[in-house]
Computed example of a mutant assay.
Amino acid sequence: MQEVMNAPGDAARAAGCPVSAAVSAHAADPLDEIAHAIGPGPFAQLFLFLSPQADAEALAARAATLFPGTPVCGCSTAGEVTGAGYDEGQIVAFALPRRGFDVETLVIEGLDRLDTRALIADLLRARQSLGRRAFSRRHESAVLLVDGLSGQEDALVAALAGGLGPLPVVGGSAGDGKDFRRTRIIAQGRVLENAAVLTLLRSDCRVRPFSLDHLRPTEARMVVTRAEPHSRIVRRINDEPAAAEYARLLGLRPDQLSTYVFAAHPVLVRAGGRHHVRAIQHADPDGTLTFFAAIDEGLVLTLAEPQDIAAHLERELGALSAEAAPSAILGFDCIFRRIEAEGRQRGREVSEILARHRVTGFSTYGEQIGALHVNQTLTGLAFFPPEEPR
């Protein structure tokens, strides 16, 4: 068993701060080991991030009996982030003690047929219920886990924004390793697809949302001239076949395009006064490009230039500790960041930085911050011990 305790563990637990653990997906009874590692609780919420090697159905059923009275939700991953940094083949638990948290969970099914009005009504009822139960807890936030192959993240976060307003919300899109075949959401003892689960939090712990990337815009721009927005497919760029034109701008042939090339050379769109990544999932045999996020005709894309991923990560995570060190960080790290780091021989260094700053979470197929679905970021919540009463 690999135990990942937030330092200092006893003090964090006593203050009601999150605690975490990770065990092998191949353990005889991984949830029993997790229960032993995180302690008796009680817990307001338990997040589980599962390697694709794990038996999600069996774990969902086991969790319902092993943690009675505790809401359990989670998802499959494209890799895990544990006390060892980047990891594989693990089940990661991130638990919110009842001493420091109250939660309300909203399961959202049928993402391809969202009823926005009904969703906002359900969301407002959930927020009101949580507010009545936990009015004395000062800090609010929300965590969203969503099917990473649904293609509906953009529509979902836009719909949720109508009921969340300025409430800080972060999230991650469930993964399936590097296979891109099947992603799963766990909620209420069930395993779901084409679904999402939103957890509303009120806490005594101070919470700071963040989203960071190490990419800068270049002068190289292109225009999407033919696309299928519903499927995130771009057929033509600058009125040329999309894959060929993207490759030409990089000085490559179309047959040289690869997952690493897409990770190392993403494109950016400008929105809300800043650039956001639009990561390319793959090139298709017909010369089209499939993206991880919303794309449309007329959109101006800018080629990105990466900074040093390790140095940037150290600097940004260090800034979170400028006044006080977080007791825990829940992180959603895009799979393409891991692919790029490994491709540039910086994987071990990035992994060590994540471990040193106590980041726990998983590698995603996309991230959510506020009303935006983004790619190639590390997005999450930093939790700080409650302030001492004056």
Rank of each mutant, 00 (worst) to 15 (best):
G366E: 12
L59Y: 03
R338H: 08
P42H: 09
R232K: 05
L301Y: 10
T65L: 11
D213P: 00
A244Q: 13
R125G: 09
Q376E: 14
P52D: 10
H36P: 00
R226H: 13
L66Q: 13
I335M: 08
S136K: 10
S76C: 06
L249H: 10
P8T: 10
G39C: 10
E219D: 15
E367P: 09
M222G: 06
P68R: 09
G41Y: 13
L289I: 04
P97Y: 11
L301I: 11
T183V: 08
E349N: 04
G298W: 05
H373M: 07
D308T: 09
V143K: 00
F291M: 09
F262K: 07
P18W: 12
L378A: 09
G171V: 02
A15E: 11
V197Y: 00
A322H: 14
A187K: 01
A294G: 14
V277H: 05
I185Y: 03
P166A: 14
R133L: 04
T183W: 00
Q307Y: 02
I108M: 03
M222V: 13
F292E: 10
V277P: 03
Q368D: 13
H230S: 15
F49V: 01
F291G: 01
E88G: 03
V191Q: 04
I335C: 07
L354Q: 05
E316C: 13
F67M: 03
G163P: 14
D29F: 11
A161S: 15
R184G: 02
A247S: 12
A27W: 07
V169F: 04
P42I: 10
T82P: 05
R348N: 08
P386A: 14
G110R: 09
R113H: 14
D179C: 04
P71I: 03
R132W: 06
F332Y: 08
A220T: 13
A84L: 12
R270L: 06
L249W: 05
R184F: 04
G39N: 12
A324K: 09
V146W: 02
G347Q: 12
A227S: 15
V4T: 08
